[in-house]
Design a protein around this nucleic acid. Sequence first.
DNA 1: CCAATAGTGTCTATTAGACATTATAAA
DNA 2: TTTATAATGTCTAATAGACACTATTGG
Lengths: 273, 273
Amino acid sequence: MTSPDPRRDESDFLAGYDPRDYDPVSVTVDVVALTIRDGDLHVLLVRRGSAPYAGMWALPGGFVRGVRDAEDLPDAAVRELAEETGLSAKDGVLGRVHLEQLGTYGAPGRDPRMRVISVAYLAFAPELPDPEAGGDAADAAWVPLAALGLTEAAEQRPGTTRRLAFDHARILADGLERARAKLEYSPLATAFCGGEFTIPELRTVYEAVWGEELHAGNFHRKVLSVPGFVESTGTTSDKGGRRGGPRPRLYRAGDARLLHPALLRPSREEEIR
Amino acid sequence: MTSPDPRRDESDFLAGYDPRDYDPVSVTVDVVALTIRDGDLHVLLVRRGSAPYAGMWALPGGFVRGVRDAEDLPDAAVRELAEETGLSAKDGVLGRVHLEQLGTYGAPGRDPRMRVISVAYLAFAPELPDPEAGGDAADAAWVPLAALGLTEAAEQRPGTTRRLAFDHARILADGLERARAKLEYSPLATAFCGGEFTIPELRTVYEAVWGEELHAGNFHRKVLSVPGFVESTGTTSDKGGRRGGPRPRLYRAGDARLLHPALLRPSREEEIR
DNA sequence: CCAATAGTGTCTATTAGACATTATAAA
DNA sequence: TTTATAATGTCTAATAGACACTATTGG
């Protein structure tokens, strides 16, 4: 086999190699962008306008610019996210979005037309405006995860959840699990909040992502006990709780990169074995 | 821009699209294969035979078969690993190797000749034979990580460690950090051991990967206290410790997928902020 | 007033980690 | 015999989590 791999240029075939002559593989980025709206976890989706999977929801994404205007993978993810949401990365709105690589999906046949390898990114965003339906998508919206039928059981069985195009249900499920795990040992829950937030607000983030209610009192004391998680602004919110209660204090994100001790999810006996 | 992205076939350009017409991007897999030899952590490396980076060590890897004999990414990783080590995946030797995706590296310019996006995999292997230098590599060997100058400081500054080709020093550093973190909450340390192992043997795995000595007594009790981490074979090793001591009992891997409670690394104050 | 909420206090079971102890095997 | 090691025991500080309590707000 005439391998043009750069790691194999011990072979005799290297001179004049042109990747176009070889197996064509396309590379895309897809973004799992999560946010909290009205206490519920939402994901940014676009609706496909044509076949395959016409009319179905899909993760925003697109082709990586390979040689002309070559871009790094995170740049491609930010660009696609900005294009689909209609927000500019220079607004400072997207500037506060946390972005990290989730994984790469390259099973043959995941795109029915050709070989596509997709690098998926995970984004944590504070509450953003509704996306503009323009761009390449027939529609674009923040969709509550509860509306996607991505139940625990469906996540276990890839392929049974047929509401998203391609293998995007699996990518979304992986992103969700990553987000759940990250909240345990990293301060990234603050990436879902604005610049200033209250402890109860932070708790709704944990509850929305983990999908379970937390004990308000223990959560409060726990957050304050982790060094560098949050720092006080000295100010107080101008409103009490939705149905009453004292005005909560305001905090901003601290300088910790890891939470120690971690905030562990309650009782996941099922996942252990 | 005529976007051939399958996620954008709302555009008018789709009919008759051929990826060869577009920006050529090559996709490779690289493998960070780790094992323990004589109590020290080793990585599988190959020595490059020609430019660029001729004579330098690099991670084993190669081109993903895209369309002809299309293969999934993990299959490509196993194939490359098998080719470089001279071991067959059907030996059962590679069958017990743990393999997981590490991340994808696609910065423009990471390969001086063309745009290459590399999907990196991380492998945990029990002690394997020396690789056969044949195949595509000028040389192949298990290299102790201590010999690579990958000190803590060097890991922090990508680019300063110049002993590995391309960005492989960064990939290796990321793989090392992933391995260190995984030992905390997953039972994957057992993947470095044979089918039966002793608790002190398991402790040397943790010590080699984490790079610090652990308290033997506390480690012993801790491992046994985690449900499903190890299960007793009822038998005892036929030899005592290297310099004396009673014969340790033998265990095999249990059925736990997560360690609870986790085995946390001692004192990483530096990493927290 | 009433109900919900923010924030704090208290108690108990679990855990981490330092240190000690005993038995066993290699040199 | 000496020394290192396996395995267990003991003690203390830190932590998780259940529960109670108060003060304060919205309705």
